[in-house]
Design a protein around this nucleic acid. Structure first.
Lengths: 226, 226, 226, 226
DNA sequence: TATGAATGAGCGTTCATTCAT
DNA sequence: CATGAATGAACGCTCATTCAT
């Protein structure tokens, strides 16, 4: 990934040696732990450094200031997430849309659920910084991956794939975020997840240009609803 | 609405006079402005007071501490929002579901869009406080209002209304939030809004117990998709 | 008592009416109560006024500032205390010294013990203000009263009454204060009190010019110690 | 001495280097100076730090909060004082009581008089904190030291040494404190000091079990006074 | 290069005092 | 006169950042 972060938010140096990479990892993990254990209010550079087993001074060798640490943490997280989405999409090229949607939703959901507290912590930490660039970059990658996937669907084509795709991703991201925000109990969260798949499939089917003839457009929706 | 906020987060006194009410309004508005202009990191009691044209001391006569100000601000906002949702739902009792969905989505969307910066500011400020109680209370009210509405739908009934309802609201809330977060240009945002309505309708239709006989359950989805 | 307090520490007006006197009393009592219940750190003008059942504004009619309130409170307390000492001394004119000492110690002790918490609170509050004038005034009155008393002792006369008297008072005041400061349990405090009387008597007898001949001076001490 | 101060009132770190020790000394000295020059009301963390030539932040590396600074200051002072008393007592084991008393009073007096302003400042500062533990600890050490000394007196034994000892110490501490509080001129203060020795000796002789036979108790006092 | 003691601007909060009502 | 809301200087304390070692 080529980072497009504003210059002043970038780590001061790239990890060129295993040592540096290990230190960076320790710092990131420490940040998350402090975020989880002490909360965002108690997340101080000193505490992070302590937990990471390095001195504050060393931390400032890697990040010119606290914001840069946050930024890099989110960047790394979103980078990995985008990677997972891309992989999942590539693996479903040519599939029918319901398989695609299920894979997409499941992949995203699992990625977020793997360490739910980390997810929650990051959702919160994001509010602290100017994250538009980050989110933008992530969204672009996800957009591209899913759009490419849907374009190969075996059972559907779309008049305005861009909009449909945007809506779909916005929905998936938004629903997952809301589920976390409301702290829904697992049973309800799982139910919503399953419904989410159903909803997305229903949407795609309603939005597609029919495979047999492609004569109906989005007019199909009105028709289907009678 | 009888507020159920923790006592220590409540305004110290209720506005008994027009003067006090005006001051409160000024403080709330100032908070939003500071949030917007200076960002959440620069939101200090001094700055808010300055912008509101009162002294810090005065602010502390209305709010026992900074958190209480945040809390009250969000409470007030969510209270109004819940009221709008309730009104809209009541007005659509007995309608067909597509009308219901459209009214619901439009109402929520308009409420959020009316002052987009305020919305964005509040989305961010919420991360600052322990807001579960607040969100919970709002969600409960919205849940109740929409569930009651859908129960009167002229053209649909649902096996598990609770889950369908939860999914629908989670979707609407989540999509709107995501649209704001990504700062989508108006054209795209509007497109997503329209698609959102379509998606919700498709979902409800897929999820309903068929009006003619009500023999199919969610199995209907699979059937419909062939 | 003619107060010799610095002008800026005096109450703004003398209580000329029963109403004003009652208010003053209420304020003084409230001050003590707040001192006792909330501690010296929480003693705020607002709290005192509240407890006294008046507004802050009214309090400022009686005392130009907080220090003046403290000052007046201590002045009133020391005035009463001096009065008691004077009365007790007058009542023992002509008595033998052991009766005098016992009366003196007992009077002072009882006055301090009557409301021990108040005593403790005042001991502490005194540190807050420039109290030399107050203590000076009190000491002068006590000095005069006891010196006058000892001068009439039926069984003793003193070469340097001033010094003996000063030592005696310093001792009594100091011991009592120390007992309070160390928070001695009642049993020990009472024991010390009794020993105090004994000590003072022993001291006066050692220091007196012998009644029979008055030939020994303070040389008597050396003699007595063989 | 192993300090038994509550954990939260202890200095955050022990001076491990000469530098740190110097800084600590500077802070302590600055505290005293501010106390003397500006009074207890103006003793703020900022002012102390300024006077000590360090930043507030540095002060907070040594003391977790203002109270801890007070506490440590008094602890250090009382620790040294107790040490002096212990030394003086040890040196007089086996002596006659008048030598003991003179040594005790003189030692205590000199320790307090060495830097009279410091003494006065500390007397005042003690009122600011919950000092019972501190005073208690000091009193215990002094008690033990003097009791052990008096037990070896060559010319006296006591029925109730504990009470006599307590009274004696309370007297010495109290008289000295009162002398400082009243700000007596040096001449008078010295006179009182000499009288204090005489008084204590007279008291001990009156309270001792007679060396010749030890048959009289405290009844001896009454007998001696005829 | 790594360290962590030192820095000090800036925070949230309090409360003595004022003054319009 | 009495009131008590408003004021704002000043407090105790935190923590991102620097820099001598």
């Amino acid at each position: 990934m080529v980072s497009n972060a504003p210059l002043h938010l970038k780590p001061r140096k790239q990890p060129r040696q295993a040592r540096a990479a290990a230190t960076l990892d320790a710092i990131f993990e420490a940040t998350i732990q402090v975020l989880l254990v002490d909360g965002p209010r108690r997340l101080t550079t000193t505490r992070v450094a302590e937990r990471a087993g390095v001195s504050v001074g060393t931390m400032y060798q890697y990040f010119p200031h606290k914001q840069a640490l946050f930024y890099a943490l989110n960047e790394r997280y979103l980078d990995a997430l985008a990677g997972k989405v891309e992989d999942a999409c590539r693996a479903r090229h040519g599939d029918p849309i319901d398989r695609m949607v299920e894979a997409l939703v499941t992949t995203y959901w699992n990625a977020k659920t793997e360490r739910p507290n980390v997810t929650r912590a990051l959702y919160r930490s994001v509010a602290e910084l100017d994250n538009e660039a980050l989110i933008e970059a992530f969204a672009r990658r996800a957009d591209a991956a899913t759009a490419a996937m849907f374009a190969t669907a075996s059972d559907a084509a779309f008049e305005d794939l861009a909009t449909v795709n945007l809506t779909l991703l916005t929905t998936i991201f938004g629903v997952v975020r809301s589920v976390f925000e409301r702290n829904l109990p697992i049973a309800e969260a799982d139910a919503v997840l399953r419904q989410l798949v159903m909803m997305c499939v229903a949407y795609l089917k309603a939005a597609r240009v029919s495979a047999s003839g492609r004569r109906r457009g989005s007019a199909q929706l009105a028709a289907a609803s009678t």
